[in-house]
Design a binder for these strands. Sequence first.
DNA 1: ACTGAAAGAAGCGTTGC
DNA 2: GCAACGCTTCTTTCAGT
Lengths: 164, 164
Amino acid sequence: MIDDIDLEILNIIQNNGKIANAELARRLGMAPSGVLERVKKLEKDGVIVGYEVRLDPKAVGLALTIFMHLKTADAVGCTAIGREVAKIDGIQEVHWIAGEYNYLIKARVNSTDGLTALMKSIGAIPGVQDSRTTLVLGTLKEEQRLDTAFAETKQNQKKLKKDT
Amino acid sequence: MIDDIDLEILNIIQNNGKIANAELARRLGMAPSGVLERVKKLEKDGVIVGYEVRLDPKAVGLALTIFMHLKTADAVGCTAIGREVAKIDGIQEVHWIAGEYNYLIKARVNSTDGLTALMKSIGAIPGVQDSRTTLVLGTLKEEQRLDTAFAETKQNQKKLKKDT
DNA sequence: ACTGAAAGAAGCGTTGC
DNA sequence: GCAACGCTTCTTTCAGT
C-alpha cells in the first residue's frame, strides 16, 4: 500500500522525471538509499510505469493532432479489432469507450497527407465500419501528471471517511 | 535543424527517459560530451519539452478515464473559456477542436463521484453551454512516443522528395 | 524500513583540435 | 562541432540498527 512518503515521492518525480535520487532524498530529508528502495518498490509494483520524454510534436514535423471515433464489428465486450488498430504507427492512444462508437483514438500526423495515410491504414483493418475524425486546432493543456489527491493511502482513506 | 543523429537520440530517449548520458553516448558511438551538447540544444530549442514519469492511474486511485466534449460561448477563434477549463485539477488535456463542440478534454477521476465533482467545476465556468461525456471502458494503448519518421531533417526532406 | 559509509560510475566544465 | 581529461556529484550496495 502507498503511504504518504510514497505520495510525496510521486508528486516530486511527476514534476521532474529526471531528478537525481540524491536530490529527491534531500527534499524528503531522508538518506538516498532509503529513497531509492522506495522508488524501486514503486517501479516493481507497477505504480511507476515508466520514464518518458515529452517532445514538441511540431519540432519533429507532426503538426497535426487528431482524434478519431471508430465503429467496429467487435462483439459486445470484445476489443480484438481495437488491438489491431493500436498497432498502427502514429496512433498514440486507443480507448475502448461506451457509446455509439466503440473506440476513441488519438494520433499525430504531419499534415493532411499523414491523415490520409492513417485513414487508409485504419480502413484496411477488417471490421472497421465507420469513423468520425476530429481535427485539433490547438492544444491548451497536455500533461501526464496525475492528481494524487485521491491516492489510496491509509491517511487519505481516513480523511475521505471523515469528509462523508 | 534536426539531423539524423538528433533523431536517433530522440528515438532512444523516447524509449527510456532516464537513460544515462554516458550510456546514450555508447549506443551512438560518440563521446558523452558531444551527446550532452546535442541534448542540451534539443532542450533549449524546445524539441525536448520535459521529462515525465508515467504512473498507473489505478494505483493512485484514479480508475476512471473520461473524455468530454464541450460547447462554449467563446467567439470564433477565441479560446478564453478553454483556458479557464484547463486550470481545473484532474483535467490532463484540453484541445481546441473543429466541429460542433469547441473543446475536447481528457480527465482522470477516481469514480463517478470524481466525475460529478469535475462536471460541477466545469459547469461553474461562465460560458460553458453544453457537454457530452465519454466513459473509457478500457485503454488498449496509451503512449507519449512520437513517430519521428516525418521529422524535418535534411535527409528526410531528400527522401520525401524522392518518394514523390 | 531507514541510516551511513564507501566504491564505482556518471555528470559536467575546461581544454584542445 | 567533437574528443579527452579531471574534479565534483550521484548511484547503489551492504552492514548495522
